[in-house]
Each structure stands twice: as C-alpha cells, then as structure tokens.
Computed example of a mutant assay.
Amino acid sequence: MSADFWAGYISGAVGILTGNPLDLIKVRLQARDALSSQTATSYVRQFESKSALVTGTAAPVLGYGALNALLFVSYNRSETAINAALNVPSNLWTTWFAGAIGGQATWVVSTPTELIKCRAQLSSPPASSWSIAKQVFKTEGIRGLYFGGAVTALRDSVGYGFYFWSYELTSKWVESSRQNSSTFSQDAAKVLLCGGLAGVVSWVSIFPLDVIKTRVQAQTFDATTTPLLGSSASPPQKRMGAVEVARNAYREGGARVFFRGLTVCSVRAFIVNAVQWAVYEWIMLELGQGRHKRVEPI
C-alpha cells in the first residue's frame, strides 16, 4: 500500500475518535429539535452514559479510516493527472477539482458508513453499529445501506473540494506571513491551524446538504414515524427523497433549520481536522513522503 493510503487511514480513524462526542450532538440536532433550550446542561445530558461517548463509532472508525485513505489517494492521483493533462502547475482551481473527484470516489464507503452512524446515534434505546448494519441488510439488502447515496455523493464532492482548497489556501497565507526559516513547532502549529480551518470551511460549505442527508438516512424501512425523526405528523406512505425532505424541513423551521447544529459542527470540525491533518502530515513525513508542492493562486 502507498504512504498516503496508510497516512489517510490512520488519520481518519484518529479523527473520528477525537470528534465523536460533538458529532453525536450535531446529528441529534440535525434530525430533530432534541436540544430545544441548548443550554450547557442540555448538551451534557446527551451523554447519559459513558458508552454515549463512543456511540456509533464502530462504523466510522472502520469506514472513515478506509474513506480517508481512499480520499487522499484519489485526491493526490487526480491532482497529478489534472495538472499533467492541462500542463499547468498546481493551483487552487486544480486543487478544488481534485478534491471534488476524491470526495466522489469515497461515495462507496461514505454512504453506508454515514447511514449506520446516524441510525446508531439516533436509536433509542442505544444500538450498536453492528446491529444496525445487520438489521438494514436483513430488511433491505445491500441497497438499503446506500439509501441517501445521491445527496451523500453531492455533499462529499462539494465538501472535499473546499476541504483541500482551503487547506492549500491557508497554508499559502501562513507561509507568506512568516520568515523563511521555520522550526518544528512552527510547522506543527501551521498544520494544526490550516487543518482546523479547512475542516470548518468544508463543513460550512455543505452543512445544509448534510442536514438533508441526515434526515433522509434517519428514515427507517417501514416508513412509519420513528423517534429518529421525532415527528408527530401522520406516517408517510413511503420514505421521502432528498428534495421532499428539504421541503418539509423548510416548512418546519424555515432556512434556519438547515443550519441547526452548525456551531457544534464547526467546533468539532476544527478540532478533528487539526488533529487529522497533523497525523497525516506526520505519517507522510515519517514515510519519506512529505508534501512540498507549490500551489499557485487562483
């Protein structure tokens, strides 16, 4: 396996373990108004037991490790191919498109991983990722694991385009604002800062899509009203698609509903992606594959 595969895999798993508690809150806020008052106490109550801290992590640790590995390998290869085909140096345009291609390539892993994670985090009583996966496969087959795949693919493509674009852009800004010589602590601080900002930018760019994705995937196969959606309306006859879910969400709370949980998500995104990029860059450096490319401005 290539260096970027292992660096991506390990950094993805570390990132999930780091940010799962805040991700749990984010998903519950997106799916229903579980934290109406949004006080400090109401946030703490989301972790009714120690196991709540790792609720739904089994699928993401396995899935996102593979997803992150596929993402970085696809991104690196795509950028090299695009630059060679266009005969241009690396720039922020090609970085965005390579990131979008890398995000699209993760669809095969991200869709079932996201579906299992969301349902595990929203289940009451709590259910393991493995039990959720078995239930979905038993009742719906392999197609059930890819429910909501279209909106997930769109979210990943756009989001990862901005993810790599913002990382390279902020890296360029930091490099231009400091002296030529740099220390290990300065390099580490740069990676942490740029990685954290990249995570925030990418999530802000696709958060409404993520809200829709969460609500789509929270629907169960029997299409009855469930605690996952927290709705008191009469049961629908079939599961809704992304467009219908978006319309219902807008009728429920206007445009604000598409940004519910964004604050929590942004805090989580900064922490997780700062750690994730630091681990990735460190492993790549240890394997003799440090990133030293020059990125031209748009």
Results as ranks from 00 to 15, higher is better:
V243Q: 12
A120F: 01
Y163Q: 00
T263C: 08
A246E: 01
R45L: 09
S202T: 07
I116P: 00
G159V: 01
G12H: 04
F221C: 13
L122I: 02
Q186V: 02
P297G: 03
T152H: 10
V279T: 07
A69S: 12
Q217M: 11
V44H: 05
L53F: 09
S131F: 08
E168I: 08
G102L: 01
F72Q: 03
T106N: 00
S37I: 10
S42D: 04
A59C: 11
G102V: 00
E244Y: 04
T152Y: 10
D23M: 15
Q237W: 14
S266G: 11
D187Q: 14
S234P: 06
T224W: 09
Q46H: 04
V44P: 08
A274M: 10
E244D: 09
V191S: 11
E114V: 07
S181D: 15
L145H: 07
P235G: 00
A127K: 14
V44N: 01
A13T: 04
A85E: 13
L86W: 12
N273S: 07
R215E: 03
G15C: 07
L197H: 03
V245K: 04
L193S: 00
A188Y: 08
E281S: 10
S202M: 02
I16P: 04
K138R: 14
I298F: 15
T95K: 01
L17K: 01
T55V: 15
M1R: 12
L193D: 01
I16A: 09
A150R: 11
T152C: 07
I283C: 14
I142L: 15
L115F: 11
D23Y: 14
A249S: 10
A246W: 02
T113M: 08
Q46S: 13
L193P: 00
G254S: 12
R143E: 08
R239C: 00
C265L: 15
R251K: 13
A58L: 10
G8Q: 06
N91W: 03
A40W: 15
V136L: 05
R155Y: 13
I82P: 04
Y280T: 05
E244I: 01
S185F: 12
S90F: 11
F162T: 02
G253E: 03
W6R: 11
F270P: 06
C194Y: 01
G102Q: 01
V216P: 08
A198W: 04
G148D: 05
S266C: 15
G144S: 13
E48C: 13
T41R: 09
Q46G: 14
K190H: 14
L228M: 10
F207E: 01
V264D: 03
L70H: 12
R251A: 14
F259W: 15
K172L: 03
G159Y: 00
P297W: 02
S182M: 11
L35G: 03
T111C: 04
L192H: 00
S49F: 03
Y9W: 15
S110C: 12
K134R: 09
D210Q: 07
M1H: 15
F270A: 04
S128T: 06
A153Y: 05
L62Y: 06
F258H: 09
